[in-house]
Design a protein around this nucleic acid. Structure first.
Lengths: 147, 147
DNA sequence: GGAAAGTGATTGCGTATGCAACTACATGCC
DNA sequence: GGCATGTAGTTGCATACGCAATCACTTTCC
């Protein structure tokens, strides 16, 4: 592993960083301009929405959204204060908590989605063909599933 | 623009976010573990290294590394305090500054590069063929150059 | 030439985030 | 059982970052 990094490989990496940074920044600005919550809030609520029973353990949720445990604790504090989700004690492990999506959380997902999805379309995927999208996904998955 | 976002297009976007987040986090942790400066420091010094005369205006540098102007001001403060670069008054515009890479800055680039590049290899590009790397770069460039 | 509008950089302020330390509970080992 | 070790989540602290306001200078327009 870690053989010498060629120029084309570095170029691919820099391209990925640039695309991600630019698209995320544009979407975040549009969300803020419309008075909507930040992407990370959406990610958390969306992860819950996709989970069985619309609930996850704190640790599972942190892994899902790629946030540190402490970062998630604080974010969940805010989301719970806004009644977008609630913490429940875990029946099988008294150390643990489960986080459950509320109806209001589901509602805010519906409000944010149009802005988020149109940003992804407009700034990320509209310039690609279906074939290119498939190829990009395949390559990224290959990276993710390499051990 | 902003036609409906299909599932495959969303999957590509989420893949990109995940790859970037995971690889960056791993590289940052390794840099921190070795007592080396963070990636953003490297990006700034590298941008200067690549620039003609190893110097750039503050604004050019901010655009290059995708950081806000205020963020760059503060980062350059720290880099200048460590003698990795220095600010010089711009001859043609008294509002402006030029940032110049120092010898020590060049040196730290050489120290960080092995860690950075081996991280990119190991966690990003090693699982791809040359053809896949080329295809990935082509697709990302297409996104970047779409207006 | 000079007022109005624009641009480059910095600073104040609020927020987000990670690491390390901590508490509470769980598991393994004897 | 009971001590040692491990794991779930939270909190203290330091740092990084963006937006809006600001200051200095430049450009535009009359």
């Amino acid at each position: 592993m870690s053989r010498k990094l060629s120029k084309p490989r570095l170029a691919a990496w820099r391209g990925l960083l640039t695309v991600q940074a630019q698209v995320v920044a544009k979407i975040e600005r549009r969300l803020a301009a419309e008075g909507l919550p930040a992407l990370m809030w959406y990610d958390v609520l969306f992860a819950l929405h996709e989970a069985a029973g619309k609930r996850l353990r704190m640790s599972e949720l942190a892994d899902e959204v790629l946030l540190s445990r402490s970062g998630l604790t604080r974010l969940v504090d805010k989301l719970e204060a806004g009644d977008y989700l609630r913490r429940e004690n875990c029946a099988t492990d008294k150390r643990g908590l489960e986080v459950v999506l509320t109806e209001k959380g589901t509602q805010v997902l519906r409000e944010v989605w149009p802005v988020y999805s149109s940003g992804i379309s407009e700034w990320f995927s509209d310039s690609l063909s279906d074939g290119e999208v498939a190829e990009l996904t395949r390559i990224l998955d290959k990276i993710l599933h390499a051990e």
